[in-house]
């Protein structure tokens, strides 16, 4: 069998119960990440996405060690405590010791992440949680953990991520105006009673909840990519936040599909199946697809900008964006 035939054979072996749900969970994660990701990127806080995604680890691991379960309430509670610890730690370094903002975040979250890894290794005997799953997720196994919902068996991860995605959209819609004002002009927002500090907390809470929900499926490294890369790509093409969030969700969904297809066909195409490697990591391939999507959007933007007249009205985003 040729490598191409092997790749087609790999796709033919797809089943909706497994592969369909893997893609659906990836797409739901993309939608859940689009709202906080867009806000963080537009507010120039991409590093905070990195920080939150890593800093929640000790909270999740600590909650697991304490409770012995992966119950969502415990996980979310532990993650929230860790996220607040990271915010407080980086704010202390920034304000008291005058450490530069990104550096302060970097110090705070790497310390917490290292603590989290130590806790995970400590918990490894508990079998339910292990370091590689923490880093790269286990989206391939997510469809196997099912619960009853509306008379159907649905993967638990899909329900959790969909709930967080819906909550993110609802919260962003509700707090849209003060978040917009405090992101663009903090001084005005503060003077006009829009409570920018509360808006910061809302955005941080959305990012934390999303990281917790996506943690098992995507892992702490890939979830950063899902938060930041689609939003950065969308920023290249959009001049307003709502289209930017929608495009970010669409780019993330594309990457989820492309990533799982790539994970299935890359091994046979590269001839790795002969060495016993049947599939690559879906989460890793999703991350690579995110990079490819970003490159694609950047390329389209470059072509479009080149064709625009240089008359002083050249836009900083694609003309169709608003």
């Amino acid at each position: 069998m040729s490598r191409g035939d092997a790749a087609i054979e790999a796709l033919r072996a797809w089943t909706p119960e497994v592969d369909g749900w893997i893609i659906a969970i990836g797409a739901l994660a993309a939608i859940a990440c689009a709202v906080p990701g867009t806000l963080l990127v537009a507010r120039r806080q991409s590093m905070a996405a990195d920080g939150i995604a890593h800093a929640v680890l000790p909270g999740i691991a600590g909650a697991f060690l304490l409770s012995g379960t992966r119950d969502l309430a415990w996980m979310a509670g532990g993650a929230a405590v860790a996220a607040v610890a990271m915010s407080a730690g980086s704010a202390y370094l920034e304000r008291t010791l005058r450490v530069e903002r990104d550096a302060a975040l970097g110090i705070a979250y790497t310390v917490l992440f290292a603590l989290g890894l130590a806790l995970v290794v400590r918990a490894a005997d508990g079998v339910d949680i292990d370091p590689s799953c923490v880093l790269f997720g286990a989206i391939e196994f997510a469809p196997l953990d099912r619960v009853q919902a509306g008379g159907h068996e649905v993967p638990r991860a899909a329900i959790v991520i969909a709930a967080v995605a819906a909550a993110n959209v609802a919260v962003a819609a509700l707090a849209w105006r003060p978040i917009l004002a405090s992101s663009f002009d903090r001084g005005f927002a503060r003077a006009a009673g829009a409570r920018p500090a509360a808006c910061d907390a809302v955005v941080g809470a959305m990012a934390t909840a999303t990281c917790v929900a996506c943690f098992e499926s995507l892992g702490s490294v890939i979830v950063v990519g899902m938060l930041v890369v689609p939003a950065c790509a969308a920023r290249l093409a959009c001049a307003r936040l709502v289209p930017m969030a929608m495009l970010a969700a669409a780019i993330g969904c594309c990457a989820a599909v492309l990533g799982h297809v790539a994970a299935c066909v890359a091994a046979p195409i590269a001839g790795l199946d002969a060495a016993g490697v049947r599939e690559l990591s879906t989460a890793g391939c999703v991350a690579a697809s995110l990079g490819a999507c970003f490159a694609g959007v950047a390329w389209v933007r470059a072509i479009t900008m080149r064709n625009l007249p240089v008359d002083g009205t050249r836009a900083t985003s694609l003309p169709c964006a608003p």
Binding site: R44, S183, F184, G187, F188, L241
Partner: peptide, 16 residues
Amino acid sequence: AYVPQRAAVDWDFPIT
């Protein structure tokens, strides 16, 4: 109505 200094505003923020 309060209009802060230009430097306090994020002019690259995606807003019309």
